[in-house]
Amino acid sequence: MDRKRRELLRAGGGLGALGLLATAGVVTPAQAQAAAARAGFEARDLDAALAALGAERAEASADVSLTAPDIAEVASAVSIGVVSRVPGTDRIAILVGKNPFPLAAVFAFPEGTQPEVTTRVKMAQSADVVAVVRANGRFLVVSKAVSVTIGGCG
């Protein structure tokens, strides 16, 4: 099933096609929604993950703040904070550039929830940590290089 879903995603180029399939009754809306929520998590490199999120042309933005250490003392738990000041922000994604699966998390902010989040990620090696914000269908990006001394992936 998982493989089939992936093939559907690849063949269709994303959510639009799945939506159509859902309309046609080939996949249920719940399946389409579940597949959409996993978009990007299978990607093996940063560019593929960004593309799966629809964010390959994300613009750099000064209205998004990314807090991450310059040097991660404990690579298995690197604290990452993202704050968006962009009106209409409804998603924030956090990616770790050189991890085997770079997309760490996608957060959804329903109306009334402040578009900011703090969490912790693993880092396999020194890499850029990337935050992607979706606001009114636009994608904005900010990144920061984080050095690790001992890899913490696992």
Partner: peptide, 25 residues
């Protein structure tokens, strides 16, 4: 009944995931 936060995770999130967020209300 109101959904205030949703997170989808991959395996790059640390063990024992920590989260902080704020909502109005």
């Amino acid at each position: 009944e109101r959904l205030v936060f949703r997170a989808d995770f991959g395996p790059s999130v640390s063990a024992n995931p920590f989260l902080r967020f704020r909502f109005k209300g």
